[in-house]
Design a binder for these strands. Structure first.
Length: 486
RNA sequence: GACCCCAUCGUCUAGAGGCCUAGGACGUCACCCUUUCACGGUGAAGACCCGGGUUCGAAUCCCGGUGGGGUCACCA
């Protein structure tokens, strides 16, 4: 059995996003399940589009998601380089070999001429394609024109007839009519290789055994297969995974549903939730199981359970899943994960002392079942650190403007001032006061919640006050009494 | 337009010819719990794209249609 070597080969342009992450995830799962090697390769062929530090961005995203890679930039496994741009010498060597064997040829047609031809093709309802103008130039003439400094690209001589069958692990055999294929460009006029060429050479040289990539590449596969043939190399095994579609069923794009991974981090999503959600998009272990860790999924992952049809990406379900994972966090872990979000809001500093940490943990626990993300948790807990800046308008109308509220709030403040600040103690005190005042408990409870938090919804008042402590509680009740109806 | 892929509730999906009165999850709605909001619990509505075959029997197999997606670059 051959050694499984898979790669994830992103272009450094733009941000790693959700569709990207899902394909990387499937590669990772496959590699781990097979005990193979997972490789990161940066396809920075197009110099003009390269982004400085792009490799780092991908490595960071990998790190966050937990996709450990075995070979990649900065992690040599003997199959480097892992930056496509550094493999140019190989690309050119293969190219000259193809040229020497007359499997490839220089083409001197200008881009404008070709564009015009394609436009004409479309107008006439014909499939737009390269007319083959330079295909039959003699090798000598080609050499002469190159020597004369004429601008040119290098094209592959694609068979004009026949059928190419792609054996895909997910789709089965898919056949393509070769007469429909162009003599596609291998080397651009600027001397850099095209994607189809560079990635094939790289995959061959890196001994990639399986290429798992998005379905959108299926149509390109016959071209690559022809290239492998021309190069005299054995092609890897292909598996085209279904695409992820935006909620409106269109292809994911930068301005359309392709949420960058960094965005999820910033919003306070948990990587384990994102990964769990993503793995279930187009794959499942069978049955009704839906919660899996990365390692569990790696155990279970097989290509025959990968869906064939594209999946629409649904934020609601991912948010629900995130909330589920968030609720499962223990107090220490919840604190650890929320801390940067609290700090970002200026609610505490780096040097929070033990008391403050304990306070934050207690507060966080109270909002845990009420939020879906870490950012929401930080927001929900803000009033524990800062006095309410505003009071819910509807709440003020309902709970503060009832006649006598000011007096009740003052009475509550006084009563609570010397109460045991535990949920039970507070409940006892408030209940007793309500009885003495002859009002329902709710008459005290709702104004109190609004007074200390500024909101009408939130944790149970008694738990809330217990954490808040006597000082903050009494002070806020008194402030609220000032603005409540006498 | 040509070529390729795909097709189960709104969404993610289970389903490998009888186990399907099509199961689960998100979302939606109702009820319960309850000081609010969540969480949790219970329940409801909600799908096999259509048409032909094959078969005793089809969501499952075949063909056609329709629909959706993708690809047709000196982008990756």
């Amino acid at each position: 059995m051959t050694m499984v070597r898979v790669r994830f080969a992103p272009s450094p342009t733009g941000q790693p996003h959700i569709g990207w992450a899902r394909t990387a995830l499937f590669n990772w799962l496959f590699a781990r399940h097979e005990g193979g090697t997972f490789i990161l390769r940066i396809e920075d062929t197009d110099q003009s589009r390269s982004v400085e530090g792009a490799a780092q961005v991908f490595e960071d995203a990998f790190g966050w998601l937990g996709f450990t890679y075995d070979e990649g930039p900065g992690k040599d496994g003997g199959h480097g380089p892992y930056l496509q741009s550094e493999r140019l010498a190989s690309h050119l060597r293969v190219l000259s070999q193809l040229l020497a064997q007359e499997q490839a040829y220089p083409c001197f047609c200008s881009a404008q001429t070709l564009d015009a031809g394609r436009a004409e093709d479309r107008r006439l309802g014909r499939p737009p394609r390269y007319p083959g103008t330079c295909r039959d130039l003699t090798a000598a003439e080609g050499r002469a024109r190159i020597a004369a400094g004429e601008a040119h690209v290098i094209r592959l001589k694609v068979p004009t007839a026949g059928t190419m069958v792609v054996h895909d692990l997910i789709r089965g055999g898919v056949s393509f009519d070769l007469s429909l294929l162009d003599d596609f460009v291998l080397l651009k006029a600027d001397g850099t290789p095209t994607y189809n060429f560079a990635s094939v050479v790289d995959d061959a040289e890196m001994a990639i055994s399986h290429v798992l990539r998005a379905d959108e590449h299926l149509s390109n596969t016959p071209k690559q297969l022809i290239l492998y043939q021309a190069m005299g190399k054995t092609a890897p095994i292909f598996a085209h995974v279904p695409m992820i579609l935006a909620p409106d069923h269109s292809k994911l794009s930068k301005r359309h549903g392709a949420t960058p991974i960094a965005e999820f981090m910033a919003q306070g999503f948990l990587p384990e939730a994102v990964v769990n959600y993503l793995m279930m998009l187009g794959w499942n272990p069978g049955g009704d199981r839906e919660f899996l860790t990365l390692d569990e999924a790696a155990q279970l992952f097989t290509l025959d359970r990968v869906q064939k049809n594209p999946a629409v990406y649904d934020t609601q379900k991912m948010t629900w899943m995130n909330a589920h994972y968030l609720r499962a966090l223990d107090q220490g872990e919840l604190w650890r994960r929320c801390r940067p979000f609290l700090a970002a809001r200026g609610l505490l500093t780096e040097s929070a002392d033990d008391t403050l940490v304990a306070y934050a943990k207690a507060a966080l626990s109270l909002v845990q079942s009420r939020v879906a993300t870490l950012a929401e948790a930080a927001d929900a807990v803000t009033f524990f650190f800062k006095e309410p800046q505003a009071f819910d308008e509807e709440g003020v109308r309902r709970h503060f403007q009832r006649p006598g509220t000011a007096g009740r709030l003052t009475a509550l403040a006084e009563r609570l001032a010397d109460t045991d600040f535990t949920a039970a103690g507070l409940e006892g005190a408030l209940t007793a006061l309500a009885q003495e005042l002859g009002v329902p408990r709710a008459e005290l409870i709702h104004p109190a919640r609004l007074a200390v938090s500024g909101k009408t919804v939130g944790p149970g008042v008694f738990e809330m006050l217990a954490v808040l402590g006597p000082q903050r509680t009494v002070q806020r009740l008194q402030v609220a009494a000032q603005m409540a109806a006498p």
